[in-house]
């Protein structure tokens, strides 16, 4: 898909989706549609013709990094994501109930709520989420 077409499609969908209010069925459906499409693409994707099989050495002309640098980067990001998940979980566990926020121990979603709750921030968040999804699921 051409970048211009993609940008317009993302902006249009984000505009419609960001008009839905959080904690509603419409917002859930708006997330579920692209999420389902991405999951289907992720499970049905086949390697490109001529691409090296997973686990094998890439072609000599393939500029993509491999080896220790890639493993080091993966380890660093895994550590960071793990720490983030643990920190989020620790804050969530200090809530009085699973669906009752604790201002003294805010979760990431509570902190981002002023941004993602509505307005231009919610539109921007939708655009960013859709772009990352396309980046992950594209063939």
């Amino acid at each position: 898909m051409r970048r211009g077409t993609l940008a317009v499609a993302v902006a249009l969908y984000a505009a419609a989706a960001s008009s839905t209010a959080p904690l509603t069925g419409a917002a859930t459906v708006a997330v579920a549609l692209p999420a389902t499409a991405a999951l289907v693409l992720a499970t049905r994707r086949r390697p490109r013709p001529g691409a090296p099989a997973p686990g094998t050495d890439p072609r000599p002309t393939d500029p993509r990094p491999t080896g220790p640098r890639l493993r080091r980067t993966a380890a660093a990001w895994a550590l960071l994501v793990g720490l983030g998940a643990a920190w989020e979980l620790a804050a969530w566990l200090r809530q009085p109930a699973y669906d009752v926020a604790a201002p003294d121990h805010p979760t990431l979603s509570l902190l981002l709520d002023p941004v993602t709750g509505g307005g231009p921030g919610r539109f921007a968040a939708w655009c960013a989420w859709l772009y990352v999804g396309w980046r992950v699921a594209r063939r």
Partner: peptide
Amino acid sequence: AWAWLGWHLLAR
């Protein structure tokens, strides 16, 4: 993970 993030931050 991406889908969960969207649901967590945008739908609920």
